[in-house]
């Protein structure tokens, strides 16, 4: 049975930020507010040692699409709003989601509220708030001379660079009062494309495929480099693997 997985080659990754930004342009995720990052892809950084023997690394993070997903288990809705597709994607259904945030609470890779420097793979869109207030703001820096968020959105869309796509479970811009997270770009994958962060990575550090197929590149890389996952002790069985090390020192 298909199990989609992603391998992130830290040796190739330069921590540049392209994947997370590309994700924001593909999935039209809103800006951070109220402790919710809405970054379906994000980064964790680590500096160790004392100068000059300092080491530094960046680790791209995203939903781990766990085989044993606590978010799915926690979802109280019937049928579940957070569920596993037959291809092993941890899917979130916008229509069924009631915004209880039990998934966010249950996910060991998420925070109900992030502080500086923290990441959360599940974010929550507050009730009764436009998805992106930045482009609903009517104020003008120079009245009558410069534009406003609302005016730009009126002439374009919200967000103005909104990438339009159709998917039965999730919208290209999600409504208020629900959670959202990486869905492995299923709207692309099912059309024979790769997730957008994968095609956008200038280092080709992200590899996507069916890990249940031992001949797939993801399976071979995980085997060859003894891929690791985040928080293995939690028993979540993540399907995002990290191989090699960020630094050669």
């Amino acid at each position: 049975m298909t199990q989609y997985a992603m391998v992130i080659d830290l040796h190739k990754c330069v921590g540049c930020g392209a994947c997370a930004l590309a994700c924001k342009t593909e999935n039209n995720t809103a800006l951070r507010r109220n402790g919710q990052t809405r970054n379906w892809a994000d980064y964790q950084h680590e500096t160790r040692g004392k100068f000059p023997k300092t080491t530094y690394m960046t680790r791209p993070v995203l939903c781990n699409h766990c085989s044993n997903a606590p978010c799915v288990k926690a979802c109280p809705v019937t049928p579940k709003a957070m569920y596993k597709t037959r291809d092993g994607i941890t899917m979130t259904n916008n229509e069924r989601c009631i915004g209880c945030r039990a998934c966010q609470d249950a996910c060991p890779y998420s925070k109900m509220e992030v502080k500086d420097g923290e990441t959360s793979v599940i974010s929550f869109n507050e009730f009764d708030q436009p998805y992106e207030p930045f482009y609903a703001d009517k104020s003008e820096a120079i009245p009558g001379c410069t534009s406003s968020g609302a005016e730009v959105a009126k002439k374009t869309d919200n967000p103005p660079h909104r990438t339009r796509y159709d998917h039965p479970d999730y919208a290209d811009v999600r409504r208020p009062g629900i959670v959202e997270k990486c869905i492995f770009c299923e709207h692309r994958v099912k059309k024979g494309e790769l997730p957008y962060c994968v095609v956008a990575c200038p280092a080709s550090a992200r590899i996507f495929g069916d890990i249940s197929d031992p001949n797939s590149e993801v399976a071979r890389l995980v085997k060859k480099h003894k891929g690791t996952v985040l928080k293995p002790g939690k028993g979540t069985k993540p399907n995002v693997y990290y191989i090699r090390s960020y630094s050669v020192k």
């Binding site: 049928p79 597709t85 990438t163 339009r164 796509y165 159709d166 998917h167 039965p168 479970d169 299923e186 709207h187 692309r188 099912k190 059309k191």
Partner: peptide
């Protein structure tokens, strides 16, 4: 088995 709706994918561009 519950069948999911059709995935339309990216709109033309």
């Amino acid at each position: 088995e519950v069948t999911r709706g059709t995935i339309g994918g990216e709109k033309p561009g």
